Amino acid sequence: MEEKIIKYLLIINLVFISLILFTKVTILYKLMKILIKAVISPLLISVFFYYLIRPLNEVFKKKGLKSSVTSALTLTIWIFILSGIFFYFTQLITPELNGLINEFKNIGEKNSHINKALDQVGKYIDISNIYKMFMESVNKYMQNIVQNLYKGFKYIMDSFSKLLLILITIFYLLKDGDKFKNGFINLFPYKYKNIVSSILEESHVVLSRYVIGQSKVAFSLSIMIYIGYRIIHMPNALLFSVITFILAFIPYIGFFISMIIPTIIAISTGFTMLIKLGITFLIVQTLKGRIVVPAIMGYTMDIHPLTDIFLVIGAVAFGGPLAAFVIVPIYGILKIFISTIYRYVIKERLSK
């Protein structure tokens, strides 16, 4: 028993040492960053949208259409839907975004202590010198306009290529998802095919439930927060509800992050608005924790809330928002992998 513990501890230490050494090798570290940016990030986004639009694809398949036709039809419908939603909300949110900018300007004008602080800073810092430096930077920027246009063009082309990669990946996932699965299983020896198939099948079910469930939770949360903001007359309610919808895909801490800007506005507005916002937050958080999440998500991931929180916080510190977004399903898949291997080992021992 002690030998096994020492063996596992040595393996864990070797893994950590390998990771540390890997980060010290500059070329490999840069290569990994490029791979994450160019390949892994678009792939993760593709998988997310694949599970989101897959139910519609399954409906078309049941109608007897070919897989290529159903994939193209599903992708086209969702592109039109998402484009319509994007343009519709852009028209509604743009005035609210301008209002939010004006709101922050008013915060500085309303609070005399902020103005006094700025006056105190002006005694020690030469504002005219800062203005001069600013104008020099603008002139330099204008002189390098060709270079800046090239950078802008490069950014647009990079974004377009990633979007195209995402669309192509989604199409082939919809079209040949089962083929990819069978091809991956065939890479393993015959005696391991059942266990690999079991891991893939369980992971597929968990990912599908998680993506669709988390989307429903995010939508429900944004609707509740929009209604709450309208009731308490919080400005830019639609903009804040959209932000809440996006951040709600990060479990637990996403909703708290979405409350930062409304809280700043509430503080500048007055104590009454701050109390109203606090009550709204408590009501929405209670409804989310007691009704929405249990009803929609159930026990999909079978992960304790405290584990979720630590996973997300650690992921944010290590890899930013994208890592926080994917850490929970990755953890769920790892649990499936370990538990399946464990069951397989126990079964093999009992058969002997």
Rank of each mutant, 00 (worst) to 15 (best):
E3H: 14
K7Q: 15
L19D: 10
L21G: 12
T23Q: 13
V25I: 14
Y29H: 11
K30G: 01
I36V: 09
I36G: 00
S41K: 10
P42C: 06
F48E: 03
F49D: 06
V59W: 02
K63S: 12
S68K: 13
W78E: 04
L92G: 01
I93L: 15
N102F: 11
E103Q: 13
N106E: 14
G108A: 09
E109K: 13
K110V: 09
L118D: 03
V138W: 04
K140L: 09
I145S: 09
K151Y: 09
I156K: 00
D158N: 08
L163Q: 00
F171C: 01
L187R: 00
K193F: 00
E202Y: 07
V205R: 11
S208C: 06
S208F: 06
V211P: 01
Q214V: 10
Q214P: 01
M224R: 05
G228Y: 04
I243C: 12
I246T: 08
I250L: 10
F255G: 05
M259N: 07
I264V: 13
G270S: 08
L274C: 08
I275P: 02
I275S: 07
K288S: 14
G289W: 05
V292P: 03
T300D: 10
T307P: 02
D308F: 07
D308G: 13
F310E: 10
L311I: 11
V316I: 15
F318H: 06
F325K: 07
V326E: 08
G332F: 05
S339N: 15
T340K: 15
I341R: 06
V345C: 02
